[in-house]
Amino acid sequence: MKKLIILSIGLTAILSACNNNKAAKETEDQKISEQAIQIHDEIMPQISVFDHTTVKIDSILTNLAGIKAAHPAIDTTNTRTELSELKTKLEDATDNMMTWMKDYDAVNEDKAYQQKMYDRVVEMKKQFEDAQAGIGKSLAVFK
């Protein structure tokens, strides 16, 4: 009887340890997923700003000759290049967000997958920050 009790206690301890490890792993995976979603939620609202800015850039590029007439000091060649590059940055950032959202599977329990998706969204945040800085720099003249 004593052996049975000791065996039962030992088996309970082993199962408990296995369950604790599984719970810790799930918690870690969930934490990575939650961090990825948090970053997504932080940068996602910028897409509407990027879309609006892209339309504004198109308008400026279309009317650049008229703008040059009103403001002769503007270098239209550099302005066209700078605004075209900014538009590309904004579109790339938006496209990357759409691709990430399409690809992301929040219920995937693979830690490597969650880490990869987290790393992608961190890179995307940097891309969004760079694009946002470009808006302030390139469009300051046109406000």
Rank of each mutant, 00 (worst) to 15 (best):
N108L: 12
V49H: 05
E85Q: 10
M97L: 06
Y118F: 10
A112F: 05
A69N: 10
Q127W: 10
L90C: 02
A13K: 10
A23Y: 04
D119F: 01
S138T: 13
L61V: 00
K2W: 06
F50V: 00
T12E: 11
T53Q: 04
T76G: 05
E42I: 00
N63L: 11
E129G: 13
T88S: 14
I60H: 12
K25F: 12
S84I: 13
M44F: 03
C18G: 13
P72H: 11
E26Y: 10
I6V: 10
L11N: 06
I43V: 07
A73V: 15
N96L: 13
I14R: 13
Y104T: 08
I9D: 03
S84A: 12
S16N: 02
S138A: 15
K56G: 11
P45C: 02
F128T: 01
E85H: 04
D92T: 09
T88Q: 15
H71Q: 14
A65V: 07
I9C: 07
E42P: 00
M97G: 03
N19G: 15
D51K: 08
D95K: 14
L7W: 02
T99N: 08
K25R: 13
T81Y: 09
I6W: 02
M44Q: 11
I9K: 08
W100R: 05
D29K: 07
I67M: 04
F50K: 00
K56L: 10
I37Y: 05
Q132E: 07
D119A: 04
V107F: 09
K22V: 11
T77A: 09
V55C: 05
L139P: 03
N96Y: 10
Y113M: 02
A69L: 08
S84P: 12
N78S: 09
K116H: 07
P72Q: 13
Q132P: 03
K102P: 09
F142N: 02
I32W: 05
G134D: 05
K87Q: 15
L15S: 09
T94G: 01
T99V: 15
M98A: 13
D103W: 00
A17D: 08
S8K: 05
K56C: 08
E28M: 02
M117W: 06
G66K: 04
S8D: 05
V49T: 10
M124K: 00
D119V: 05
I67R: 11
N19Q: 11
L11W: 08
E82V: 14
I9L: 12
A73M: 14
F142I: 06
S8Q: 04
D29E: 07
T54L: 01
N63P: 12
I57T: 01
V49M: 12
A36E: 01
L61K: 03
A140Y: 06
S48R: 11
R80N: 15
Y118A: 03
I14F: 13
Y113Q: 01
L11R: 03
D110N: 11
Q35T: 06
K2G: 10
K102F: 12
V141G: 04
K102V: 09
I74A: 01
A23M: 02
K31S: 04
E42R: 03
K116Y: 05
V55D: 14
Q30F: 09
A23N: 05
E42G: 00
Q30T: 13
T12N: 14
G66I: 02
A13I: 14
A17H: 01
V55P: 03
I57W: 07
V107D: 15
